[in-house]
Design a protein around this nucleic acid. Structure first.
Lengths: 165, 165
DNA sequence: TCGAATTGTTAGACATGTCTAACAATTATA
DNA sequence: TATAATTGTTAGACATGTCTAACAATTCGA
């Protein structure tokens, strides 16, 4: 009895295609090559060629000139990519105070290269920061103060004063 | 009068080579193809070929069978990569509590893809966390508690209690 | 200092993923 | 429903960066 290998390692590109299909599928139902092409800013032949590879791996189903949909395995991979994407976006946007667009762009790149351990910790970190802003010693707001004024808020100084201004 | 273009956009690979040369140069002075090969875990012909490209861009000097050294421009690029590398490593290690090795590996990947804005903010964030642990309401230690116990420390609860558990 | 071991280079194959050009299928519309 | 516009595919060029095999230069030790 041969065990099926399910979760193959994907390249950044293939992960992008899977992610795009999942997101378009969620929105509109019927996914088209042209949509993926627009979303990923690549030409249609690139999409066709990627879909061919993903079909061979049974991650998507794609009949010539026809519908594109994720298999359950493809969906699992895509969802995992999206999970990373969202945690990273939240980190950049919420924790670092970066604009949504840049946050998304960075998430899009980093989601493909970050280790599982760092990803897990980062997700927990965001969760922590969002849920636990330290009561009235609100963390993000102090960080914001530091960002805007270039110096530490009053109640930091006890411990950082030695490091000169 | 034609202006020289100095800081070209480099690929992740080329940035890795520049970074490696800079780091080996700092250590030993004389940089060899074999060292770069070992450091980056690629075969020597890959190194030779990369150095050829970087030479054409005047980022390294490399004479056949001879010394390898960065030009001032190459050094500037390399230092910038290393700056990103170090800030990222500090973030993963200090802020997220990840082991040095994994932190380095992740930094090595992310340094090539993160946007300048996010990089700047992340660096400031690390600076902030390291310099300003909120007096006795030490931030990293609360985060650590959360990591280890899976629940928020007492003084977080005022604000997060509503979220179940 | 000669020969073996090490180090480095060249040539060229290969993998990935992009693109353009040409053509084919589908769809929408007059 | 014929034809025009759109959408999709195929073929093949190209860029990047890796590798192996073969050869060349350098270095080190007997």
């Amino acid at each position: 009895m041969v065990r099926q290998e399910v979760q193959r390692e994907q390249t950044a590109s293939m992960e992008d295609y899977l992610e795009a299909v999942a997101m378009l599928q969620g929105k509109d139902k019927v996914v088209r090559v042209s949509q993926i092409s627009r979303k990923l800013k690549v030409k249609m032949p690139s999409v066709t060629s990627a879909l061919k590879k993903l079909s061979e791996q049974r991650l998507v189903e794609h009949e010539r000139y026809g519908r594109i949909k994720l298999t359950p395995e493809g969906d699992a991979v895509a969802r995992d990519v999206i999970r990373r994407h969202e945690a990273l976006t939240r980190f950049f946007a919420q924790a670092l105070g970066i604009n949504r667009e840049t946050a998304e762009e960075d998430a899009c790149k980093i989601e493909h290269v970050i280790s599982p351990l760092s990803m897990e910790r980062l997700a927990k970190f965001v969760e922590f920061i969002e849920a636990c802003p330290l009561g009235r010693a609100n963390f993000p707001s102090r960080y914001k103060y530091y960002l805007e004024h270039g110096e530490f808020p009053q109640d930091c100084l006890e411990r950082s004063a030695k490091k000169g201004k």
